[in-house]
């Protein structure tokens, strides 16, 4: 068991479990937060868990060691674009509603 712990950084499941926990924590935060900023932060956590999985698989299993890293870089680019868009939407929403609490944004309620 002790050697198992000592070699955790050389084993695929350790990274997969960290990625899964990041995803679960991000999911929890996404459901729990009640502001748009909080939801954006949790979404970034979910993306981080996904990229950790890609890099771990690329490092341990893939023949092409580069593919995982390249995909993680692409995720980074998409996440940056997403953050910029979400924040501009948030500022527009704040200008119109004077709040970013999600429960107050109900103009389209039937």
């Amino acid at each position: 068991m002790e050697t198992h712990f000592l070699q955790a950084s050389q084993q695929l499941p350790a990274y997969l479990i960290i990625g899964a926990l990041l995803f679960a924590i991000g999911f929890f935060g996404f459901c729990r937060h009640r502001t748009l900023v909080g939801m954006l932060v949790s979404g970034e956590l979910i993306l981080a868990g996904a990229s950790l999985n890609f890099v771990a698989f690329g490092h341990f299993l893939a023949a092409d060691r580069v593919a995982g890293q390249a995909f993680a870089l692409f995720i980074m680019g998409i996440a940056a674009a997403e953050a910029a868009l979400v924040l501009s939407i948030m500022i527009a929403v704040y200008r119109n509603y004077r709040t970013i609490q999600t429960r107050d944004l109900k103009a389209m309620e039937g």
């Binding site: 499941p13 479990i17 899964a20 995803f23 679960a24 924590i25 459901c31 092409d64 060691r65």
Partner: peptide, 26 residues
């Protein structure tokens, strides 16, 4: 919901036997 998700993913990771690493091209 999140803890069920985490437990399911954990069990899946423990239960899977991964394929042998491919011979690295680079």
């Amino acid at each position: 919901a999140a803890s069920m998700l985490a437990v399911a993913l954990f069990l899946m990771i423990r239960g899977t036997t991964w394929m042998a690493p491919a011979a690295p091209q680079n």
